[in-house]
Amino acid sequence: MVNKLPPATRQPHSYPGKLIAVEGLDGSGKSTQLYLVRRWLELEGYKVFFTEWNSSSIVKNATKRGKKRNLLTPTTFSLIHCTDFADRYERNILPMLKAGFIVLADRYKYTALARDTVRGCSERWVEKLYSFAAQPDITFYFHLPLKTALGRILAGRPELKYHEAGMDLGLSPDPVESFKIFQGRIHKSYEALSKKHGFTRIASDRPIEAMQEEVRDIIRAQIDLPRFKVVNR
C-alpha cells in the first residue's frame, strides 16, 4: 500500500461523517456544552466520537525544552502545535469521519489560528498550514463579554502558565495583566474568524440548559441524525 498524504481539503468535506467543533475563550462553557451534546447523542444511540485539543507528550517535551532554553518562537510554537494536531487529526478525526461518525471536537484548528496570529504569525500562512484539516459542518462559537470571561477564568485558576498567559509576547511582566491583554487579543481574533468562517454564535452568558437547548436545535436542524443511528445486530 502506498503511504501517501491525503489531499488538502477545501470546504465542504465529502466524508460520510459529520464534524462539529466548539471554539471560544476559556470560561465560555464550551466544554460543558459539548459534553452534554456528547451524552445526548450517545444516549440516543448515535455513532459519536469525541476528541479534544490537548498536547501529546511530544509537544509537551518540546515546549518544556523550548521554554527552558528560550528557543520557542511564534513560528516554531505554531509548527510544533500543528504537528501535534496533524497527528491527532490523521489518527483520530479523519478515520472517524471516513467511518461515518459524528465527530465532536473540543477546540479545533481555529484555536491555533486565533492564538498564532496573535503571536505575530501571518494569518495566510497559518491558514494554509492547517488547510489539510476539513472544515467542520458546524463550528459553535461560544462568545461572552471579555470581562465576564476573564472573571470566570481568573477566579478558578490561581497560577497561570507561561505560554498560557502569553508571557512570551512581552505584553506585561505581570502574568495576570499579560493574560488579560493576551485574552483580549484572542477574543478579537475569534470575532474576526467568526465572521470569516461563518461560525454559529452561541451567547454564553445564559443558563447551561438554555444554551444546550439551542445547540441541540441547531444540530437537529443541520444534521440528518437518523443517518447516524447505531444499527443493532
Partner: peptide, 28 residues
C-alpha cells in the same frame, strides 16, 4: 535542532507517524 531533534529521531525509528505529521515535524 535542539527543539525536536530527539523526538524526530525517535519518530523516524518507530515509523509510527503519518506522512503529514512527519512532514510537519521536519518543518518544526
Amino acid at each position: 535542532s535542539e527543539l525536536v531533534g530527539e523526538e524526530l529521531a525517535a519518530a523516524k525509528n518507530g515509523n509510527v507517524l503519518s506522512p503529514r505529521t512527519l512532514s510537519l515535524f521536519y518543518a518544526t
